[in-house]
Amino acid sequence: MKATKERFSFLEYALFTLALIFALLLCLCVGSVPLPLSDTLRALWRGLWGQPLPDGVNKAILFSVRLPRVICVALSGAALSLCGAAMQGLLRNPLADGSTLGVSAGASLGAVIALAFGVAIPGLPYAGTMGMAMAFAFASLLLILSLAYALDRSFSTHSIILIGVIFSMFASALMSLVISFAGERIKSITFWTMGSLAGSNMDHALILLLALALCGGVLLRHTRELNAFAVGEDNARNVGVDVRRVKLTVLITVSVLIGVCVSIGGTISFVGLVTPHMARMLAGPNHKRLLPASMFLGAVFLLLSDLAARTLLSPIELSIGVVTSLVGAVAFVIIFRRTRKGG
């Protein structure tokens, strides 16, 4: 077996970036109203410098609908995938992810409660919903992990997933209850269970970017600790990792990021499960390579899923979560089978 470097080279990053730009442009150009690539590029360039747009490009479609949506999709994909990769390392559990652990369902419940009861922070739009989504995401994670620990001291993969699934159902049931009482004020239940980034705007994109930069920075600072945890929590303690501090830091960071994503795009299942696995096949388990690779792949994967959701049954638009769940469910079975084999 040949030696691999600890970090990606400049060239590898350049390749990732190219793939991402290609996916972004593809998603900008393809849709119910197709935009030619050259016109789109020219319009983006001119739009960037505030110049008048060329003829034939629908400004509203490009700048108010497609661009914010595409940016939000890419950022959500990167964020959810990063969270999945970090949790899979921390819990040494290849099936861990916001949706399998019930964190996303918890965040949705928080957001729905905030909307139904009008929880808001004056002067800060979205802050009430997001704050509640983050708080509920963290509370769910704590609840699920402590329940799993209480029921099964060995903290096995299967009991954590089982409790996550049960908790997700419980949270979904509560969510339907709140939504049926709240009536018009809340987007449909499908939005919160399947996810959609159709209505995103530039404010959403900016919030996602800030959250990803901040939380991503924290997680990328902990790659060595995540490696130690992925080898084993006892091993992490033996080599000198402050186990409790790191665990809490990573779990809070992941909750914040999932909370923000869910409050903007609803629950988009399985992104955090599938892409870190693809990244692991590509980059190996070392988090110094795995986390950046997961972010890029997550962004590209969700962009393509969103494209499929928009175009497969056009003019009917599917929820993005339908596509990711279809792919994710199959991937889940494959990964589950592999872990059962002990591989």
Partner: peptide
């Protein structure tokens, strides 16, 4: 020791 991921 039980290793889960393919670390070298």
């Amino acid at each position: 020791h039980r290793v889960e991921y393919a670390y070298t």
